[in-house]
Simulated assay, not measured.
Amino acid sequence: MIVEIRNVQKRFRGKRVLEDVSLTINEKEIVGIVGGNGSGKTTILRLLAGLMYTDRGDVIVHGQTLKKGQFPGNIGLLIETPRFIDRLSGYDNLKMLADLKGEIGKIDIRATMEKLKLDPDLKDAVKTYSLGMNQRLGLTQVFMERPKLLLLDEPTNALDEDSKKRFEEMLFEAREQGAGVALVSHHKEEVQRLCDRVYMLEEGVLKEVQTV
């Protein structure tokens, strides 16, 4: 088991966002979470990434119960619009991030960029990128280090059909290599097609609605 959320409660300014939420994500499993805007879907991803903390309950990632100030390793994270250093090229942004961990080199970065139809040799600054290019760069960052846990918030936002297909191929490849995935989206049909299990988050309550 890669992820276990136990009886989690989260409120913002007194408003219930998550109420007694429990969820598991196993190796080689894609778990989808759907719900309306502001339902708390992204909050679950933030809790798993250590960017936010519960009011009550436990969040366990890679066997470790997360505490304040702890960030789990071996994850690929895409939440909201990907952000990079505007003046640098896409490749230079990814190379700088990869150098922080030292787990992959130029070949891995270039290969992952090319899978998502990005040119590693393009010198244009990221600030000139279209929304679709910026999203593909964010997905490249998610996949390039082959993490064991992928946290994806609206991953196909601004992607054309070819890019969506490439993303799906990489998603399934990551699953086959042992990764667990939490995929948040408002596209119910997409989630139902891609995921092994699907949950609906409504009024703070998480309910399973589909098992493949």
Rank of each mutant, 00 (worst) to 15 (best):
K95C: 01
D86I: 00
S89C: 13
Q70N: 09
A98R: 01
A98H: 06
N134K: 15
G69C: 10
L118I: 13
S130A: 06
K68I: 15
I85C: 03
D99M: 02
K106S: 15
L94D: 08
R146F: 01
D86Y: 03
L94T: 05
D121T: 14
P120S: 11
D92H: 15
G69D: 12
D124S: 12
I104H: 07
L100G: 00
P120N: 06
L100K: 00
F143R: 08
D153V: 10
L88W: 15
K117F: 02
L152N: 11
L131E: 14
D99K: 01
D108F: 01
R136C: 11
R136I: 05
K127H: 07
R83F: 05
G73E: 13
G76D: 03
F143G: 04
G69M: 10
G73P: 08
E103Y: 03
G69V: 05
A98S: 04
R136S: 04
G105P: 04
T140D: 06
N74Q: 03
I107C: 00
T112G: 00
D124W: 00
L116C: 09
L88V: 09
I79T: 01
K106R: 14
I79H: 02
P82M: 05
F71M: 11
K127I: 09
V126L: 12
P72R: 05
E145H: 14
I109D: 00
S89Y: 14
G102M: 09
G102S: 07
K106W: 08
F84A: 10
D119K: 07
K95T: 02
E103Q: 12
F71R: 14
E80I: 02
I107T: 10
G105K: 08
D121E: 15
F84I: 12
K127R: 14
S89K: 14
G138H: 07
L77R: 04
R110L: 03
K148D: 11
R87Y: 04
L131T: 15
A125L: 05
L78K: 09
V126I: 14
I104G: 07
K101D: 05
D119W: 05
T128I: 04
D121M: 07
G105I: 11
M113P: 09
N93H: 15
M144L: 01
K148Q: 13
V142Q: 08
D99F: 00
M133Q: 08
I109A: 10
K101W: 10
D153C: 13
T81Q: 15
M133P: 00
D86M: 03
E145M: 03
M133S: 03
V142S: 11
L152T: 13
V142W: 13
T128W: 08
D108K: 08
L139G: 02
F84Y: 13
K127E: 12
D153P: 13
K117V: 01
D108H: 06
L122T: 02
I75A: 06
K117A: 06
G90W: 10
Y91W: 15
T112N: 02
I79F: 00
K117C: 02
T81M: 09
R146V: 02
G102D: 07
M133L: 14
K68W: 09
D99V: 00
M113G: 10
K68V: 14
G105D: 10
N74R: 04
N74H: 05
Q135G: 13
K148Y: 08
L116I: 10
K101G: 14
G138V: 03
L118P: 06
G105A: 14
L94C: 04
R146C: 04
I109E: 01
L152A: 12
T140F: 04
V126A: 09
